[in-house]
Structures are given as structure tokens and as C-alpha cells.
Write a protein that binds this DNA or RNA. Structure first.
Lengths: 141, 141
DNA sequence: TAAAAACCTACTAAATCACTAGAGTATTAA
DNA sequence: TTAATACTCTAGTGATTTAGTAGGTTTTTA
């Protein structure tokens, strides 16, 4: 399960990507349009800025803006920043690997092979979807 | 991420499935062999019993035993009992559906189509893997 | 009847989640 | 230069979940 933070983050970015104009978008505008608590969204957008996805401008006419093109931002990379690992177990995570403390040795673990399979099938989807894909209307598909 | 409860549950069941003999297996034996806290494992196995995967016998010579054949128990069904939803968002879960409170209407949600895709690719793996698959050695594969 | 083993009740410390309050700081338009 | 704007930072909070622990009860078998 994704946390609300991740869900909100993805929605906010999608909202920003949908707007063609490159002028900064207000936190409050996104919060209102997407039904997200403004204060909570502040934290999320700041984190996305600190991880290099967003830029910001203070003062009147300010707001947040995408730094890279939506086509170049994979959903996988966003989930990793907002949520953490994508794998179901830390011991099969590519980016957040942690050793199992209950396993004698990893090669013998009955779960790891399966969990690697799940991870790879999830990544196949998430690494190939970008922010740009999220902006496309879903109703017709 | 799966909770330790789910991980332990899957490991414990795999351990039981690996033993050919149909005689009951002790909680303490599983706990020791799989490095799981015995008290915590009690809770887990009880839950698996209450959801119809295990039977039990009290007193000397007692223990837990699998009710169905390992080949007939999908990993997906176990995760659903131990962990809950497999989907990344409640609003795209097949078995634990919950409405989004921030979405105006679900058809327009930018995330749902993607999350359905992730769900289906995960299920494709988990619905087709059984406890019997988990008992097979992973080293040679 | 004694030991074994599952079962049950209750509790807990720590972490995480989903926020909220309020002050601070940088920018810009008037 | 002042006032408004809008991001930034610090701090805290209530609810929930996680991962257990303690200790006693019931049932079964030898």
C-alpha cells in the first residue's frame, strides 16, 4: 500500500504536468483542486524539491514548477523518493536493500526468489511509466 | 512492503509444507528453525487457523498442520489473509476496495489506471504461485 | 495425574502516519 | 520602501500499526 503522502505527491505532480504553462503553480491551488491538506502538501512538495524533481520561486507570482520534462520522470523514481522501496521485502530491494535478520543465508530463503519475481514485474510497469503517461486521460482507455 | 507477520507466516507455512510427514508441527520447532519469536508466531498461526489454512491439535503430540495441499494454496490468498490488500491503493483493490475520499470520480483519477496495471501484474505472479512452489529449492534456479 | 502444547487475555514500547500551528524568509509589485 | 505573497522551517500531536511480551487457561495424551 502506498501512503497518502505518495499518492498526494503523484497527484500533485500530475496536476502540474497537465498545465502546459511553465509558470509556477501555487501549493494552495493544487491543494484545493486535488483535495489535499495544504500544510501536508507543503511538506511533500518540499521533499520533491529537495530530491531534484521540482524547483520553486518565492513571493508573488511564485510557486513550484517541474524541473525536468514529464516524459523523463518515471513513476518508479517518484515512488522511491516519496515512499521508499518498491519491493515487498527489504532483502530483495534494489535501492533500499537490507539484510534479513531471520534468514540464515539469502540463497536458501524460500521467499526471495518469488519476491524478486514480484519486484521485477512491478518495476516493468513502473519504470516504463512517466509523469507524462499519468496526464493522459483514462476515461477512453 | 510486507510486514514481518506476513513474512513469518509465509516462512512458517513453507516450513510445514516442506515436511512430508502429516503429523502436527510444533510452534516452537518452527520458531526455532526459522528464527521467529515463538509468541509472535503463535498469533500468526492462530490467525491462519481461523482463516482455514491450518488445523491444530492440542496436548502432547499436538501442533499445527496444513489442511489443504500446498499445491492448492496460492501465495496471493495467504498475503490477503496475513497482510490485507495486494494493490497499491485501496481504490483499485479487488478484495479490499475502499473509495478514495480525495477523488472527485474514480474514472478521472490519473493514478487508478496505472495502479490497476501494477495490481494485475503482481497478481499474475502471486495467483500462480503456491505454497508448493515455495518449497522448491532456489539455489539451482 | 503430570506433562505437553495449543489457546486466550491483556499489555506495551516504538515507530509511522497524517496531519496542524505558527513563525521565518525571500521575492516582487505598487 | 512597504506590503503582500508564497515558500520554508521548527515543533508538536493524536491515532494507528507494528512487533512483540507476560502470564495464565484449556485440552490431550501417556
Amino acid at each position: 500500500m502506498l501512503s497518502k503522502k505518495t499518492k498526494y505527491g503523484l497527484k500533485a505532480l500530475t496536476y502540474m504536468a497537465k498545465k502546459e504553462s511553465k509558470s509556477p503553480v501555487l501549493i494552495s491551488e493544487i491543494a484545493e483542486q486535488e483535495n489535499i491538506s495544504k500544510k501536508f502538501l507543503e511538506i511533500i512538495l518540499l521533499q520533491l524539491k529537495n530530491s531534484g524533481f521540482l524547483g520553486s520561486k518565492k513571493g508573488k507570482g511564485g510557486g513550484y514548477y517541474l524541473i525536468r520534462e514529464p516524459e523523463k520522470i518515471t513513476v518508479a523514481s517518484l515512488i522511491r523518493v516519496l515512499e521508499g522501496p518498491i519491493a515487498m521485502l527489504p532483502c530483495v530491494s534494489l535501492n533500499f536493500y537490507e539484510k534479513c535478520d531471520d534468514c540464515k543465508n539469502e540463497e536458501e530463503c524460500s521467499l526471495s526468489r518469488l519476491m524478486i519475481e514480484v519486484r521485477d514485474s512491478t518495476l516493468k510497469v513502473l519504470e516504463n511509466k512517466t509523469l507524462a503517461d499519468l496526464t493522459k486521460s483514462t476515461t477512453i482507455v
